[in-house]
Design a protein around this nucleic acid. Sequence first.
DNA 1: TTGTATGCGTTATCAA
DNA 2: TTGATAACGCATACAA
Lengths: 349, 349
Amino acid sequence: MLRTIGVYFMDVRKKSITIIDVAAAAGVSKTTVSRYLNGKFEFMSAQSRQRIAAAIEQLNYRPNNLARGLKSKRSKLLGVIVSDIKNPFSSILLKGIGDCCERYGYGVLITNTDDDPVKEREYIEAMIDQHVDGIILNTTGQNLPFLLQMGKEDIPIVLADRPIEVKLFDTIRTEDRKSMFAGLKHLYDEGCRSVGLFTEALENGTRICRSEAYQDAYREIFGKVPQIYFVDTTKETETMAVLEQFMADNADVKRAIFTANGTVTLQVVRTMLKAGLHFPKDIALCGFDNWEWTGLVEGGITVVEQPTYKVGRECVKRMMARIYRSPNALPKRIELPCRLVVRSSSQCI
Amino acid sequence: MLRTIGVYFMDVRKKSITIIDVAAAAGVSKTTVSRYLNGKFEFMSAQSRQRIAAAIEQLNYRPNNLARGLKSKRSKLLGVIVSDIKNPFSSILLKGIGDCCERYGYGVLITNTDDDPVKEREYIEAMIDQHVDGIILNTTGQNLPFLLQMGKEDIPIVLADRPIEVKLFDTIRTEDRKSMFAGLKHLYDEGCRSVGLFTEALENGTRICRSEAYQDAYREIFGKVPQIYFVDTTKETETMAVLEQFMADNADVKRAIFTANGTVTLQVVRTMLKAGLHFPKDIALCGFDNWEWTGLVEGGITVVEQPTYKVGRECVKRMMARIYRSPNALPKRIELPCRLVVRSSSQCI
DNA sequence: TTGTATGCGTTATCAA
DNA sequence: TTGATAACGCATACAA
């Protein structure tokens, strides 16, 4: 990186041009340039403004956001922590967040916890170290004490999709409960008389909400004792066993499975196909998450479509409101409506 | 944010504790603390080291990365620009990148261009403004002049998956060409005598490479004139027309479609199902990208599985090598091997 | 309407 | 082995 010129050493890295260079070129002080950069034109002569604009253009000057953030306490960066980046849910959420951030001139620092609470804590701290202006968190649900602590810090947190028990942070979710009632009602109307909920372990708010909604709706609509089946989507043979158990438990009745999310749906479909079972003939099927492929398998799977993109957008809007408008407002919970997409997997009649 | 206490106003935001506080608590100078933070223990008394550790622990001190970056010219941040964040390819790539970055203590700033070259330019500049240490770019392929310019800047760029014509940047890709030969060979062995390539417009390096590989392989293995069909995956009826054209062009022969990526595969499958066509009976099918659902549709789709996760990891490794080991080394091109996953969509015999 | 001086929290240079 | 002190690039209180 060092080059000899004559008897001198010159650092060859193009020394970055700063506000000082602009000031010099424009013949004003750096304060004035700073004012220009921050849009404070109120008490600035048209001449200064013009000359600064010219200087910036000519020098191709770009402000250093690190320096800006250091001084202004605003990094214009948002931290986003998702629990499973490979999940299409995350992709769409991130797109919503990214698109919306663009409008506000914000960048996003993204990390993925793989549902590991230790990573969640580490990443939250890492983002604070980066002085992000706020954190959008799709929490693992296993860090309540830590989050309680975070509630006392002055960095805003918005929960995406997964709520926590305490009303401590802004939370953007979807209308799970209503959707669960609609889905079960639909299955009932289609003639099903027994529906089991297939879900992963109830480790986060979304799963808990859905399982509770299922139980309430099932009792109300079917008047029967709820049946919850736990699956680990990484374990094939175990899932197969659970599926067989479900069939044994509901041998003589028109039966259906309600899957608590897209990942479970995938696992159930995979297992059913492997077992040579078909829906709706052998078992009717309805689940959360309208992923691309759900329309293609067998005759299509009936799903609850969630407005995940909007959830992302709302997270950012809420965050901006909190940062710039009402830092001390009470935490808000927003629930966005879903849509039931009926396909052949639940059409039994 | 202001609270009245007696007659004074007190800023309630807990003033962040800095290196100075640590120095005071430990009874050393901030220089020594800085040395400690940067692991320069060589000339430090065990006592200082110990007391600083204690002070940091007790004050719960965390260094401010903005300030660090400002001074040290190393933000410990990588920029990542993907062309379509909703694409599973991006998810897996991001996971590979994220996992690997963690090991190096790096954070990732992620943006999504939706294949818009204007956004690509804007985001590259935004990342430079943030003083990221390097950019991993899944380029739109429509910014050659701009990228040529970037080649002169001293910020390292690593291309993920999509190459550009000029050998200017490190590039991590997969063995497209070899895979295309393997796929076509497989189709030939299965009795197919006519294969059309379905691809989106040849706007980026990957598409171009694959179409060229297809042409070469097709001539060599089938000894026939290549047939390339262009689809716009956002247009349903248009795709249907293309599909019908393909069938008309190959009415009396055992025919197959090779899809250039997962998105095209999805679109083709969707269109075929809508047209009441089935594979391999009506048309055999083979494509790139082993996405989850490809094993579930009909009897399963034959695909080329790419090591996308590894691509992500390699991008980061390459970046680290360039940043810390050999900033001036010649650009490297790395190609990772793929795997042909044979399923029923291509098994004609 | 503009400029001076100071500080943000670090790291780096040099002297001790 | 350690510590003043000067940057880093920008924003802002205060002065003019």
